[in-house]
């Protein structure tokens, strides 16, 4: 491929990504909503539940605040991608997306630009939260940080794509909020982010096994404790978690592209 063709293919993806960055910087409230809120959750629920709740399946002495830490990373990624997909709903309502749809740009590159935009923002906020690891009692090695970034990317990519599947089909933000509470929040609650699968009733364990985010959270946990795997507790192994997370991301992206292809407004 010559330079001309490469630029032509990359331009639409890049420009939609860039727009997400600019918009984010001009809407400070999004940072508060997607970052500060989960951190508050972590501090309040973590401190509150640490007193009465010892997560089963974890090494003795693991405080709930520490157990909850990777779960909050997942929540930050989830909230950021929710904000990113809400902005797609707004783009459609305000007419901005119409102009993009009639431009000489494939639907796949439109979706890729949107997904990468949401993923980048999620990644940056996840990275910011990694700085708080010492407060959870987790000491991170450079390798742990690097692999965690990779996992956060995969998880955010999958979640943004999933959000877009919904956003491209719904034309009001109220509708999106309803779906969010019905689908996205339960996915997070039942991913091992909030409580471990150990000791749960069989049916609930199955639901968690079928939940794709379970493997994202497991991979995060494994990466954070890369130097000392025993501390990660009773969660699925790293390699299969990574593979399943990547496969989920790819499928969600393909689904979002398919939905976007059918969309007319």
């Amino acid at each position: 491929m010559d330079k001309q063709t490469t630029v032509r293919l990359a331009l639409p993806v890049m420009t939609l990504w860039w727009r997400e960055m600019v918009r984010f910087c001009r809407q400070r409230s999004r940072l508060v909503g997607a970052f500060v809120q989960p951190v508050l959750f972590w501090i309040l629920l973590g401190a509150g539940l640490s007193a009465s709740f010892r997560p089963p399946g974890m090494p003795a002495g693991t405080a709930y605040l520490e157990y909850f830490y990777p779960g909050i990373i997942a929540l930050i990624l989830l909230f950021t991608t929710i904000f990113a997909t809400i902005s797609v709903v707004e783009d459609r309502r305000e007419g901005f997306l119409q102009a993009v749809l009639v431009a000489p740009v494939s639907r796949a590159s439109i979706v890729l630009g949107q997904v990468l935009g949401g993923t980048t923002l999620a990644l940056l906020q996840g990275l910011l939260f990694l700085l708080l690891a010492p407060f959870a009692g987790i000491s991170l090695t450079p390798l742990a940080v690097l692999t965690a970034i990779g996992v956060m990317f995969l998880v955010a990519f999958g979640l943004t794509s999933l959000g877009l599947v919904i956003a491209w089909r719904i034309d009001s933000t109220q509708g999106f909020h309803a779906i969010m509470n019905l689908i996205l929040i339960p996915i997070w609650v039942l991913s091992g982010a909030f409580f471990p699968a150990s000791n749960l009733p069989g049916w609930l364990q199955w639901v968690m096994k079928l939940n794709p985010l379970t493997y994202g959270v497991a991979a995060l946990r494994r990466c954070l404790y890369l130097g000392n795997p025993a501390l990660a507790g009773d969660v699925p192994p790293l390699l299969s978690s990574l593979v399943l997370t990547a496969v989920f991301g790819l499928l969600a992206f393909l689904a979002a592209t398919a939905v976007a292809r059918r969309s007319t407004t």
Binding site: V22, E94, G95, F96
Partner: peptide, 23 residues
């Protein structure tokens, strides 16, 4: 289109640059 398809959070120039990239 009947409804403006500009991004209100971008400047006039940024809107044009974005559009140009799409074309």
């Amino acid at each position: 289109f009947q409804d403006p398809s500009l991004d209100p959070k971008l400047t006039v120039m940024e809107n044009l640059i974005h559009h140009g990239h799409l074309y």
